[in-house]
Design a protein around this nucleic acid. Structure first.
Length: 349
DNA sequence: CGGGTTTGACCAGCGC
DNA sequence: GCGCTGGTCAAACCCG
């Protein structure tokens, strides 16, 4: 099992990540393929080592500096023949690959800034834009041909929001690959699907989700690797500006961690999907013990900056239950999953 | 009935 | 300039 985590917040930075001391950590690749460690043995998806724990692991393990130069071996099957002839995992440093796989939109010039601040279009994506359009439409048009009106309406609705001349600004993005049978991984937040597109050169469609929390404009794309259908590529865009699930589904609830040194920052709950996966796809565990985080990359000015809060929080959570990274290290598992080069460089830091 | 999903259409950016 | 593709919208539909 392997997971790929990467962030394509700033593709160009990612491309430049090869350059030493690049602030960007883009292109970082973390190979957990062989890392039976994290969730090995009795580990259950919902156990102390959940998905986010694993993420935490990576973030603990993968220091930005490591991202800069680490060039891991391929851990996934050859990349899609057409989408990108280059190996997906190794070449994530390359903006092109990032673009090809996780987020095509990465081709757009992205600001490394976190645009998802309270004043940003978070909510606008939800209602503002549509309302705005509706309002605009209201006064101007009264009664023409119904069809015409509809057409205009459509046009307006779609033009309005985008008309705001400015180039579409991108939130920092953070993507990761997960080996899972479930397309939409439940990360504890509530998402609303707002679109689906066929992906070129891929039999699997890409789904677009938005966080349903008011004021939170976080989006995520979910798609399956055309190469390995068992691999789900999830790309987060933006950062949640709210605590955990407002209206938790199922067993998920706000899981504040008082022990967190980060005070009020919320703690990633046990990902529900992990349970789901375990229940639905038990065989996964047979083949490999843990959630497969193939690799993680970030191309922002700093790894930290581009990682969603819910991930970052985890990163610093030093509680025993979440300190998977330290666990790995302690158990020497890190050596199994982190290429020598990577470890080497880590020491040098 | 409210909230989520599906789906066709539209727009913008990019490459040729 | 044109076509392709990603991203988004929103009506229709579904579901609890």
């Amino acid at each position: 099992m392997a997971n790929l985590i990467f962030s394509d917040e700033n593709p160009s930075a990612a491309a430049a990540a090869a350059a030493p001391e690049a602030t960007s950590s883009g292109g970082s690749i973390f190979d957990m393929a062989t890392g039976a460690g994290a969730c090995d043995g009795d580990t259950k998806w919902g156990s102390s080592l959940g998905f986010m724990d694993l993420l935490g692991i990576h973030q603990d393990v993968i220091a930005p500096s490591l991202f800069d130069s680490f060039q891991p071996p391929p851990i996934l099957p050859p990349p899609p023949p057409s989408t990108s002839s280059e190996p997906l995992l190794h070449q994530q440093l390359d903006a092109k690959q990032l673009q090809a796989l996780p987020s095509p939109a990465s081709t757009l010039p992205e600001s490394s800034e976190v645009l998802n601040n309270p004043a940003t279009p978070n909510s606008s994506s939800f209602s503002s834009s549509s309302n705005e359009a509706a309002n605009d439409h209201e006064p101007t048009k009264a009664e023409d041909d119904e069809e015409e009106e509809q057409d205009q309406d459509k046009t307006k609705k779609q033009l309005k929001p985008k008309k705001k001349n400015q180039k579409r600004q991108r939130e920092p993005r953070f993507a990761f690959m997960t080996k899972s049978e479930v397309d939409h991984l439940d990360d504890g937040y509530r998402w609303r699907k707002y679109g689906q597109k066929a992906v070129k050169n891929s039999p699997f469609p890409r789904s677009y989700y938005r966080c349903t929390s008011a004021g939170c404009g976080v989006k995520k794309r979910v798609e399956r690797s055309s190469d390995d259908p068992t691999i789900v590529v999830t790309t987060y865009e933006g950062q949640h500006k709210h605590p955990y699930p407002i209206t938790p589904r199922g067993s998920i609830g706000i899981n504040m961690d008082p022990s967190s040194s980060f005070g009020p920052s919320f703690v990633v709950p046990q990902p529900q999907y992990l349970h789901q996966q375990q229940q639905l796809q038990p065989y996964i565990y047979n083949s490999s013990p843990s959630l497969n985080i193939t690799s993680i990359t970030t191309s922002g000015s700093s790894f930290n900056a581009s990682i969603p809060d819910f991930l970052q929080d985890r990163r610093f959570n030093t509680s025993p239950t979440s300190s998977s990274a330290s666990l790995l290290r302690d158990n020497g598992l890190l050596q199994d999953i982190v290429p020598t080069q990577m470890r080497k460089e880590a020491k040098e830091q």
